[in-house]
Structures are given as structure tokens and as C-alpha cells.
């Protein structure tokens, strides 16, 4: 089989077409043309264009990142402002509440004092009325006692003069 292969190869002329130097000139000539063509395409059109696109993209990305950073800072700032406003509002609310409390307390104190004074006045009045009532009661008791005593003495057949009876009643009531 090996000999067959060899003879077949021998029949198809050169063993290695690569070593057929008669075609080298041709290949080298066209290769140089092809390389010059590729070089011109690359250096004149393709590479500057792709480089520009890549640079533009890098620029865009950098700008976008910077913008994002900016927006983030702004968001943080806004949040701080919001928190500050919230704290201010809370403090203001607290202050108003305190003020209102103090005011109410003052009013209440005045009202209480006034009420106390009224109550005291009313109490004094009542006391006076009570003592008057008590005095008048005593008086009535005295009158009733005199009358009763006079009637009792009369019933026993005696005749008591007013002066003695009054003295006796007064002495008894003291006792």
C-alpha cells in the first residue's frame, strides 16, 4: 500500500507543492499586494473608526457614571434636607404643644384660683347664714322655753312674773 501511495504521489507531479519554487514569485507578488491592501484598509478606514467608536463609548460610560454619581449625591442631599425638615417640624410641633400646655395650665390656674375664691366666699356666706340661723334658733328656743315655762307655772297654779322666768331660762340654757 505504501508503494502504491508513493507512486500515486509521484504521478501527481511535485511531492510538496509548497516546495515548487516556480510559483513563489507569483505568490510573493500577490501576497505583497494583498498585505498592502489590508494595511491601507486598516490604517485609513477601519482602525481609526473602531478606535473612535471605542473611545466614544468609553467617554459615554465615564460621563454616565459621573452623572449617576451626581444624581446619587443629589439624592443624599435631598434626603438630608427632608430629614432636617422633618426634625424641624417635630421640634416646632413640640414647641407648640408645650406653649399650648403652658397656656392651658395658666388659664386653668386662674380659673381654679377664681373658683377657690368663690368657693371661699360662698362658704363664708353660708357660715354666716348658718350662724344667723343658729342664733335665731337659740332665740326661738328661748322664747318657746319662756312661754312653755310660764304655761307650766300657770298650770301648777302659780303666777310667775316674766323677769324671774327669763332669768331661770337663761340660767338653764347656759348650764
Amino acid at each position: 500500500m505504501a508503494t502504491e501511495t508513493n507512486s500515486a504521489e509521484a504521478a501527481s507531479a511535485p511531492g510538496m507543492p509548497q516546495l515548487d519554487f516556480s510559483t513563489w514569485g507569483n505568490q510573493i507578488f500577490w501576497l505583497i499586494l494583498a498585505l498592502i491592501a489590508i494595511y491601507l484598509i486598516l490604517s485609513r478606514v477601519a482602525l481609526p473608526r473602531i478606535g473612535a467608536v471605542l473611545a466614544e463609548r468609553a467617554g459615554t460610560i465615564t460621563n454616565d457614571l459621573a452623572a449617576a454619581e451626581d444624581l446619587k449625591a443629589k439624592a443624599v442631599e435631598a434626603e438630608e434636607a427632608y430629614n432636617k425638615a422633618l426634625a424641624d417640624a417635630r421640634a416646632e410641633a413640640q414647641r407648640i404643644v408645650d406653649e399650648a400646655k403652658a397656656e392651658i395650665k395658666g388659664e386653668l390656674d386662674v380659673a381654679i384660683a377664681k373658683a377657690d375664691a368663690e368657693i371661699a366666699a360662698k362658704a363664708a356666706e353660708s357660715e354666716k347664714a348658718i350662724s344667723e340661723i343658729r342664733a335665731s334658733a337659740l332665740e326661738n328656743v328661748k322664747v318657746v322655753a319662756k312661754d312653755t315655762a310660764k304655761e307650766i307655772v300657770a298650770a301648777f297654779g302659780g303666777k310667775a312674773d316674766a323677769k324671774t322666768i327669763t332669768a331661770a331660762v337663761t340660767a338653764r340654757m347656759k348650764g
Partner: peptide
Amino acid sequence: GLVFHPMDQFII
């Protein structure tokens, strides 16, 4: 039988 011409593809 078998015929091999593996280098023929390189002929210019």
C-alpha cells in the same frame, strides 16, 4: 484500492 492525494489540494 485506496488512492491518497493529500497534497494535491495545495497545487497552485
